[in-house]
Every structure is written in C-alpha cells, then in structure tokens.
Nucleic acid binder design. Structure first.
Length: 592
DNA sequence: GCCGTCACG
DNA sequence: ACGTACGTGACGGCA
C-alpha cells in the first residue's frame, strides 16, 4: 500500500523565502487563511515570532521569516501581513489560535475574523483525548506522520519553511475533516456559539493577567519559613532522629516501623501516609498531627508563595496564567503555569494568600460566583420536585436536605445535620456508593446506606435521573450536557464491574458538571459583550469553574455589579433560578 | 517520568 | 473478597 503523501494532489512545496512573493499571501481568501507561527518559546506570553507560515488554499503555503540569522530585512514582513491578519472578513484557520492571538498581539497585531481552530474541533469531538497535539490528530485523521523538529540543532530557513509548511497543509486538511465531523455530530452550534467566541476572551484574560503584591508574598513566605523551622525541630525531637519529612518512604519507616503505629491502608509503593491515615493516627500519637501541620504549611509556602512569586512577569508585575480550553473531559477550563484555579481559600492562610492578589491603583477586584450551580443543574435536569421547590423558595439547600433526611423542621436543623446533608448532596453529584459516603462521614456502611435510601425515597426525580443518565450512556456510548456537549463513556458496558461502575458515576456526573461549565462559558461571552457595549473598561481576569473575577475601576464597580448579575443569572432559563453572589474589595481576600 | 500528596471547584 | 465520589495541576521524592 502506498503511503499517502502531503503532496499527492499537487500541493506545492514551500516557497522558501526570504524574498517573499507577497502575491502568494494576498487574496482571494475564499477558503480562509490558514496560519502557523514559528516561535522561540512554547509560552506565547514570552515567545518571539521567528516566522509565520500562511496558506490560502490546500495547495500552496509560504513561510515568511520574521527574524532569522543571515536573512536581511525580514523584520518588515509583519506590517505587510497586518491588514490581512486583522481583516474581520477573512476566516482564520489554525491549531490553538489563542496562542497565535497572544503572540501576534505582542507584535501589535490583532488577529480577527471567524476562527476555525482544529484543536478545539478535536476537543469537542473527543474530550477524553489525553491531548490534541497536531501530530496525533494528523496520524489519526489523515494518516500522515509529522516530523518532529530536532531541538538540539539550529534549523536553516529552508528547514523551518518545510516543517512549518508540512504542518500548515495538515491543519488545512484537518479543518475540513474535523469540521465536517462536528456538523455530523451536531456539535457545530457548540463550536460557533460557545467555544469560538471564547477563544479571544481567554486570550485577553491571559494577556491582562492578575496583579500580585510580591512584597506580601515575600513577607508571608518568611513568616512560614520560621514556623516550618520550629515544627521541623519538634518533629525531629519526637521522632528521635532527623529525616526527610517530605519523603513518604522515610516517614512510613518512622511511623510504622520505628514507632510501631498501625498502618491502616497502603499504596502501590508502601504505607499510605495521607491525610486520612495521619488524622486517625493523631488520636494515638503526637507525631502525625505535627506532620500534617508541616505538610499544610510547606505546601502553601512552596506552591502558593515561592513558586507563584517566580511566575510574576517582570514586564507587567502580574501573573499570566495559561487557560486551557481543550483539557478536561467534562468541558471545564483548566489553568496552568501557574494554576490560578486552585489558590487557597480556606482558613487563615487561605485568606492571607488571597490578599496578595490585588487590583491596580484606583481599581477593585469583583468576584461573582454562582450559588450551588451544580445542584441547581441537577434540579433542572432531573425535574425533581422537592429540589426544584427548595431552589424556587431560595432555601439553603443543605439545610433543606437535612430537614428532609432527619425529619425535622428547617429551624431545628443542627450544624451536624447540615454537615451530613451537605456531604450527601455532593455525594449524589458524584454517584457515590454507601461505602464512599461512610468513608466521607466516618460512619458505618449500614448507616450510610440508610441516608442514601432515605434521600432517594424523598427525591424520586433524582433517582430517576441517575437511572436515565446511565441508560442513555449504555445506549449511545456518550454522556451529554444540556447544550449537546458529549463525552464518550467507553466502559459503560464493560464486563469488569469496577470499570463499569466507575463509568456509571462518570455518566451521572458529566452532564451536571459539563452543563455548569457550558453555562458559565456562555455567561463569560455575554458579560464580555455587555461590558464592551456599555463602554466599560472593567476586565474579566479569571474563571474558577463557578466564579468570575473582574478588575474594575472604582467608579465602574456598581455598574459592573448590576451587569454581571444580570448576565450571569439570565444566561439561560432553567426550571430553577440561577443565583449569583457578588463581592468586591481591593484584593481577593475573604474580608470583602 | 511516575507516585503520593494536596490545593481548588 | 474486592473496590469503593466527579473534575483538575503542582510539588517533592525517587528510580
């Protein structure tokens, strides 16, 4: 069998320029303009553009060098391309266009026009993929093996041109294949109305970044350094020797061999020393509590003070996270380098760390979060009467659940009863078993089974929803959100019970988590449009799954508050109201 | 590069 | 007897 080649149907190899014939990249752009940047760095926030590959059809591509040793006058290329790249009537095709938007913006160009992103298309088709790299997609959908550039070697201009060109033609063909599949799978609406408009918004959020009070981080780090020093000394004294507290291996040796404490569970590699184990051991020995304290504080210091400080851009004094639009199986975004979606919030140290996230002079941070969005989505999708009634009456949902579970009136619900009900409510979202609930609540499995049975007797709609979700996954092989986003559930009909049950929990949870993700994405688009339409200068700077964080000039804060509440609560009409809580202050700390 | 652990929703 | 709640990303240790 003949191996298909890129150039089978007469595609031209690349014009290896420095002497660019710009006619090649002038119109017509009936098929859109496909582009691929060649940059010095993977991270677009610091990447310099070495060159840009362009193609206006499936046959031709050119490589335009911007900066290359030995090539003259190449720096003039970007201004010539600017008009075309900024033309909103020309469709732009690319793989991970958000990176392109950011890198080009740093060179003064605003990439505009309908965006056809092959990475996002692949994600909508199969959100379970571990990645959506061009290499893998080309293999799978085009049966073309892309060459990997040899990083240890400086490539010649011709080599750059060839590698970029090869990729460009793959992107063009992928666009055709993937977007055809999107429309065949009824996913085009999700692309056009949700993911595509989100691309420039995420680019903007990353570019704006979040201002950090670096002195505050340093002060907190110093304070923790001192605390950790004294905890460490106590640990060594109790253990009777010095050892690496961070090593689970060495810690296991001290706890379970030297001190003869009882191991309660084990990991693949040895004794478990996780939080559950150590909390239990803390009732019989003084060392485990010290270890837990040490771990908490060293995590805060290492990850959220020292590492975060390193990520502050010297140019902007802000941190510029990367937001991933094609990362999670459910449709949520993720954040990395640094991850700003898991900044501590609980406890004294959580608040103190968030106080280092600040607004620009004359500005405030405004945070708006959906109240109980996943349980509201469950109420809508299940149609459960009691759940719907509770939300319509604007009740505290955990208190309402507790009142039902324990058969008392709502004003007789104790803190403990509410705590149990809260765990049960979250357990429902995750498809928990009696065992899972018993572990979470530290109660017997019989008692846990009673709670669950009790809950389902009171919430027949939820029970039915769970059965429907599982049956639908069995029939279609997918879990679907309210907006048609899908996630393949491969093991739903597995003969392996463990795998099958895991798949069933995914089938129950994904529509809930995924619908909530869809809703907040739509809200981001609406809020951004409304901010623009009203001529405000407030900026959306972060999304944390059910929360949006804005930076806003002090004089705009009241206007923004109204706008955000309106757009977020009105994003979609469900059978229960959506509720948004809003706080603002000079920083992200809890004392707004 | 994987593992255990733990920060968040 | 087994395995046992959904979704992420980052850190330090270790092979």
């Amino acid at each position: 069998m003949k191996i298909p080649s890129l150039f089978d149907d007469g595609a031209e190899a690349f014009r290896k320029v420095p002497e660019v014939d710009y006619n090649h990249i002038k119109g017509p752009f009936d098929e859109g303009l496909c582009l691929l940047l060649n940059t010095t760095d993977h991270n677009p926030h610091r990447a310099e553009i070495l060159g840009i590959g362009l193609s206006r059809n499936q046959q031709q591509a050119v490589y335009v060098p911007i900066r290359h040793q030995g090539a003259e006058n190449v720096a003039d290329a970007l201004p010539i391309l600017k008009q075309t790249l900024q033309d909103p009537s020309i469709k732009k095709i690319g793989h991970d266009l958000k990176s392109h938007i950011i890198a080009l913006k740093r060179h003064g160009i605003e990439l505009r026009g309908p965006l056809r992103d092959t990475m996002i298309a692949s994600y909508l088709l199969d959100s379970n993929r571990s990645n959506h790299h061009l290499e893998g997609l080309s293999e799978e959908y085009l049966q073309i093996t892309l060459r990997i550039p040899d990083k240890s070697r400086n490539l010649s201009l011709e080599e750059h041109a060839e590698l970029i060109g090869e990729r460009l033609l793959c992107i063009r063909r992928l666009e055709e294949v993937l977007f055809k599949r999107l429309s065949d799978s009824a996913l085009e609406g999700l692309y056009n109305n949700l993911e595509e408009p989100l691309i420039p918004i995420l680019a903007e959020m990353e570019m704006v970044g979040v201002k950090i009070d670096s002195q505050r981080l340093k002060d907190l780090s110093k304070e923790l350094e001192e605390q950790l020093g004294s905890i460490k000394a106590r640990i060594y004294s109790i253990a009777g020797e010095r050892f690496n507290i961070n090593s689970t291996q060495q810690l296991g040796h001290i706890l379970f061999e030297k001190l003869h404490l009882k191991p309660t569970k084990k990991t693949k590699t040895g004794y478990s020393t996780d939080i559950d184990t150590l909390s239990q051991l803390a009732t019989v020995h003084e060392l485990p509590a010290e270890i837990l304290n040490y771990r908490t504080l060293s995590k805060l210091k290492n990850t959220y003070l020292d590492a975060l400080a390193e990520m502050i851009s010297p140019q902007t004094g802000r941190v510029h996270t990367t937001l991933h639009q094609a990362a999670t199986a459910t449709g949520r975004l993720s954040s990395s380098d640094p991850n700003l979606q898991n900044i501590p919030i609980r406890g004294d140290w959580g608040s103190r760390i968030r106080e280092a996230f600040v607004a620009e002079e004359g500005c405030l941070l405004l945070s708006s979060d959906y109240s109980q969005i996943e349980l509201r989505v469950l109420a809508h999708m299940s149609g459960d009467e009691r759940l719907i009634e509770a939300f319509r009456a604007d009740k505290d949902i955990h208190t309402a659940t507790a009142a039902l579970l324990f058969k008392v009136s709502e004003d007789h619900v104790s803190r403990e009863m509410r705590r149990v009900a809260k765990v049960v409510n979250f357990g429902i979202l995750y498809g928990m078993s009696p065992y899972g609930l018993s572990e979470a609540l530290k109660i017997g499995t019989t008692e846990a089974a009673e709670y669950i049975g009790n809950y389902f007797n009171l919430h027949r709609g939820v029970k039915d929803y769970i059965e429907r979700a599982i049956q639908s996954a069995r029939d279609t092989g997918f879990a679907y959100t309210l907006f048609g986003r899908r996630r393949a559930i491969g093991d739903i009909n597995s003969t392996n019970k463990t795998l099958r049950q895991q798949a069933e929990r995914i089938a129950v949870n994904t529509p809930i988590q995924g619908t909530a993700a869809d809703l907040i994405k739509i809200a981001m688009i609406r809020v951004n449009s409304a901010i623009k339409a009203q001529g405000l200068t407030s900026r959306l700077i972060l999304q944390i799954h059910d929360e949006l964080l804005f930076e806003t000039p002090c004089q705009e804060v009241e206007t923004l508050k109204g706008l955000v509440k309106r757009e977020m609560e009105g994003v979609e009409t469900l059978s229960v109201p959506l509720k948004v809580d809003i706080h603002h202050g000079p920083n992200w700390g809890g004392a707004h």
